[in-house]
Computed example of a mutant assay.
Amino acid sequence: MTDDEKLLVWLLLLGSSSLCFCSELDVQCLKSLQRSLVDPNGILASSWNFIANNVTPGYICKFTGVECWHPDENRVLSVRLGHLGLQGTFPQGLQNCTSMIGLNLSSNRFSGPIPSDIWRQFPYLTSLDLSYNSFSGPIPVNITQMTYLNTLNLEHNQLSGEIPSEFNGLFRLTSFNVAGNLLSGPIPILLQKFTPSSFAGNEGLCGAPLLNNCPRKRRRRLRLHRINKESSMGAAVGFVVGFVVAFYFPQWFIFSRRLHPYIFRI
């Protein structure tokens, strides 16, 4: 039995031991999600009907984009809301879908940053698709703590900065895409197994599998050059000042015992 299969079995056992509690949390999860979204086409409004005190098993499983572990249980397996014209920032309340392993928000109009604590909200995600939106800012470093991720798709957003080197710890990744962003810097070694198209459209990215090589620590060389230049200038100024003082005030050197060894050496 693989680690992923063990995880799924564990989630099932956990859910069966506290079914009512989990179901209530999952309903609250979807309510919070709907409230945090702008739904201009009214797709969710027409499908997500939360009837007061509804205890019908699995009624949320009929909602658009909601997949349950079992059709007779109100436990969310995945939320897939792609291509619905949804707007707003990253949705709120999804952390209450405690058994969720898949999230797809692709091809909408979401904007703003990806939450830095996304790994706390979805510790068991195996698939995350945020592609074709307008998410901006850096890729959260802590996303690398979502160790069960098999699929991560962030293409065609406005993400900037470097791909965190900590991505080398995501050993389960089988699908990865950050094409069409504003990323820069070297591609982490573990991600170099993916095709060049997975990184296309990021002019600042460098290294394998792309053809452009990363510059060899150019900034460090410039910094060292600046330090050496400043040191040389300081030494030159010190020499000139010392020469002038020695020429116009030789008595300072003659009567200074500390300088006698240097005077005799000269």
Rank of each mutant, 00 (worst) to 15 (best):
E5M: 07
K6I: 04
L7F: 02
L8S: 11
L11Q: 14
L11P: 11
L11E: 07
L12N: 13
L13K: 13
L13N: 15
L14S: 15
G15I: 03
S18K: 11
C20E: 14
C20I: 14
C20G: 08
C20Q: 15
F21Q: 13
F21L: 12
D26R: 03
Q28S: 14
S32W: 00
S36R: 05
V38D: 11
D39E: 04
N41I: 02
G42W: 05
I43T: 08
S46Q: 03
W48R: 10
F50V: 10
I51V: 08
A52K: 09
N53E: 15
I60R: 00
F63V: 05
F63G: 05
T64K: 09
T64A: 05
C68Y: 08
W69C: 03
H70S: 12
E73K: 04
N74L: 04
R75Q: 01
V76H: 01
S78R: 04
R80F: 07
H83K: 04
L84K: 10
L84E: 06
G85L: 08
L86M: 09
Q87I: 03
F90R: 09
L94M: 10
Q95S: 13
Q95M: 06
N96W: 04
T98S: 15
G102Y: 00
N104G: 05
S106N: 08
S106L: 01
S107F: 15
S107R: 15
N108G: 07
R109N: 15
R109A: 15
G112I: 02
I114S: 00
S116A: 01
R120M: 11
P123W: 06
P123C: 03
P123H: 09
Y124D: 14
Y124E: 11
T126I: 02
L128I: 05
N133D: 05
S136C: 02
N142E: 07
Q145E: 10
M146T: 02
Y148M: 07
Y148C: 00
T151K: 08
T151V: 14
T151N: 06
T151G: 01
E155Q: 15
Q158Y: 15
Q158A: 11
G161Y: 02
P164K: 00
F167E: 14
F167N: 10
N168R: 02
G169W: 04
F171S: 15
S175G: 10
F176A: 10
N177F: 07
A179H: 08
N181F: 08
N181A: 02
L182P: 00
L183A: 09
P186C: 00
I187N: 01
P188C: 07
L190T: 04
L191W: 03
T195S: 15
T195D: 14
P196N: 11
S197D: 10
S198Q: 13
F199V: 00
A200L: 10
G201D: 06
N202K: 06
E203I: 13
G207H: 00
G207M: 02
G207E: 02
P209R: 01
L211N: 12
L211D: 12
N213D: 13
C214W: 10
R216M: 12
R220H: 13
R221V: 08
R223E: 14
S231Q: 14
M233E: 13
V237Q: 12
V240M: 10
V240S: 09
V241R: 12
G242M: 06
G242H: 06
V244E: 01
Y248Q: 12
P250S: 01
F255T: 12
R257H: 11
P261D: 11
F264Q: 08
I266Y: 14
